[in-house]
Design a binder for these strands. Structure first.
Lengths: 408, 408
DNA sequence: GCGTTTTGTTGTATGACTGAACTATTGCGC
DNA sequence: GCGCAATAGTTCAGTCATACAACAAAACGC
């Protein structure tokens, strides 16, 4: 109620939903609507189908679809006889090999780059194994940048247009500035990774790269399959990370510093953690701890552990059950707080799922307040290996579909 | 990719964001934009101010404002000389005593009803003390319904229009059906509270009542004051509840069964909880446990505890510090998961804040991964007593402002 | 008292959607 | 084989909400 506030109105700006709607806003929104109808459908749709799905008239849909076809976001297939009376429909599908998204990742033991097109097909994929614990960011990111330039060149020569890229990192990333605050397992801190990539399109144009946490992008990769709209994704590796997906969107508050679940209290009387506290989740469900509990060296591979589990090794099974109980305890807290009913196990938890699931579910059943009223689901991730690459590329393409006006 | 999916398109429907945009959608959206500009401003705005804030032209703003004034959502104040050259502006403010929202609440030791208008003023408020532990829902809700009818009659006679109501309950509420699954401290379970209220407007029209969790509505009440757009609200009473506010909106996933934080694991070797598990947060920071630890009877009042604290009673201080450490441990997990940097203490924690805050902050500083990069804030709630009533009424009015087209 | 400044209003133009009529292309019955 | 029914897609006038520009209103100040 200060006099100043009435004399110095500030433009909205910060809130994206607070923008004046004009005629062209209408057009953009309906373009998005039509694009989403085509992209989220299980199969080819005709213009008439799109009209029914969106509620727009066939006339409007026609002009919008024509724009999308012209911009090569949507492709027309040859008309096919429908067994019914009437003029055959022109099937509309996402355009293949037209607009593509790039997923990039630096993780502890590999680098990767992957390109997806709007149909979800993998156009190019490169993964280089290595050991990047306590590595030099400039050097590693330059290597990744080279990898990226290489496959960007290929897709460019193929006549495809690169919409942008996502760089997945195993650490705390500021979603607004793109700065990496800290990545303990890489030994990196306080740096801006994007300039170090040195990524430019072959035609010299800038490639927009957005940095994000690895577990969160992996969570988004699950959306490609049959998954509920809201779920909690928990990824196990040396550390434990999480992504919260609500209505098919990543949950983000403030700077996006969320999903850091590795240091949840499981038992304050438990073993000391590298973070200084006692009994953190990582001390039970982190990769190194599971291996150690199973009687394996900390640098053993996951396959060695799986081998023991399959051969009914008591120590290995006990180690994974211990991890499962700890994970269940942490997940119960999160399910109570968030109210999601599905938990997807990623990272090493994916392959450990057969031996983890029962323990996790048992603890959830005991500790989740809403358990009597909802069926809790715990399942393995289905996006395959290097899912952060897939998730990153998908996220780029999701934005293309959400804002098709920029491409027509 | 089944043939069926292409021959049987289903209308969108479920996703509210997936509705075809037409001309009147534009109008509704811009009406909302203008309404929000007026309602969220710190003081009176002129039509020209609104034009600057929204980005709409003065011409458009004029017609939109005229609609809002005609619908009595916005009021024009007499023009006032601005000390500057030029025609004096007509100040626009939220209309007083025009459209109102009703907040209702059943809690363990009181019933309440409160009416707010668009300016945020309390028009009517009634609170009846009582003891509703293991009470009869039909009887209690009928009493509350009577209270509500009474003050609804008053506002109706005053020429005000009731937009709707929110009923706050201390339990697990299904946000979609409005069913109360369980409210342990009332001894209620599996019931539909709204019909039992028997609430009708004096003119016979139906009053839309939405049921919600008490802590969540209390969290929304904080938005009336100076609070960051995203925060975690934790309310202490017999149980401990929470509300997650992100960008000034309540976070909700699936059925809204979230914020159940009372049974977070603080120490698996801790005391047994009524829920069957060990070392739940409630066993440290629940009202009865704090009182008991402080050497008071479990039915003692909060004032007695505050008395002891103020007189530097060692036992009471130790009890609250113990609660603070447990609360800090649980909150650290949540802050890590959610990435919010502000925690607001509600319920009995509000008045205990001076003795809790240091412990909570200390534990947060130790256990929150992002702590070095962000300033964590822990503060007492500022919405005053019976804040769920205020929050509920506010929420009704927020929807009016978000959809002003229905009122003009 | 008149120019300057700011507010608010009144036209006309533009763009995007609707609705209805129209064309295109098929299957089916006679 | 031909006409009718059915479905897909297009064309065109009508409507509506906004932008843009010119204008009217009401203050200040020298």
């Amino acid at each position: 109620m200060t006099p100043e506030s009435s004399t110095t109105p500030r433009p909205a700006g910060q809130d994206p939903s607070a923008a004046a709607a004009r005629q062209h806003t209408l057009r953009e929104r309906n373009l998005q609507l039509v694009a989403r109808a085509v992209f989220e459908a299980g199969g080819p749709l005709s213009r008439a189908d799109v009209s029914v799905v969106t509620g727009l008239t066939r006339a409007t849909v026609s002009t919008l679809v024509d724009r999308l076809v012209e911009g090569r976001l949507v492709a027309e297939l040859p008309p096919v006889a429908s067994q019914r009376a009437g003029r055959p429909a022109v099937p509309l599908v996402p355009a293949a090999r037209s607009v593509v998204g790039l997923g990039l990742e630096v993780n502890v033991d590999y680098l990767g780059a992957r390109v997806l097109d709007l149909t979800g097909d993998v156009i190019e994929s490169r993964v280089v194994a290595g050991s990047f614990h306590d590595s030099d960011p400039a050097e590693v990111l330059d290597t990744l940048g080279g990898l990226a330039r290489e496959i960007v060149g290929i897709v460019h020569d193929g006549g495809m247009r690169l919409a942008g890229a996502r760089l997945a990192l195993p650490g705390l990333v500021d979603a607004r500035t793109g700065e990496l605050e800290v990545a303990p397992n890489l030994g990196w801190s306080s740096l801006e990774p994007v300039p170090l990539l040195g990524l430019r399109a072959p035609d010299g144009s800038r490639v927009p790269v957005v940095v994000a946490n690895e577990a969160k992008l992996a969570a988004l990769a699950e959306l490609a399959g049959d998954v509920p709209p809201s779920f909690l994704y928990v990824s196990g590796d040396v550390g434990v990370g999480a992504g919260i997906v609500v209505e098919r969107r990543l949950f983000t508050a403030e700077r996006g510093w969320n999903g850091e679940v590795g240091h949840v209290v499981v038992d304050p009387a438990g073993p000391r953690c590298s973070c200084g506290a006692f009994g953190c989740l990582e001390q039970y469900a982190g990769k190194e701890q599971i291996l150690r509990s199973a009687g394996l060296p900390v640098d053993a591979s996951l396959d060695e552990l799986l081998e023991l589990l399959r051969s009914h090794d008591g120590g290995a099974r006990a180690a994974v059950q211990r991890a499962g109980r700890a994970l269940g305890s942490a997940l119960a807290d999160f399910v109570n707080l968030l109210g999601v009913s599905t938990v997807v196990l990623g990272g090493i938890f994916t392959e450990l799922e057969p031996w983890l699931r029962a323990e996790v579910l048992a603890v959830l059943g005991e500790r989740v307040l809403a358990a009597p009223f909802v069926s809790l689901e715990v399942r393995a991730a289905r996006a395959g290996q290097y899912s952060a690459l897939t998730g990153g590329a998908r996220e780029v393409l999701r934005e293309v579909v959400a804002h098709p006006a920029a491409w027509v």
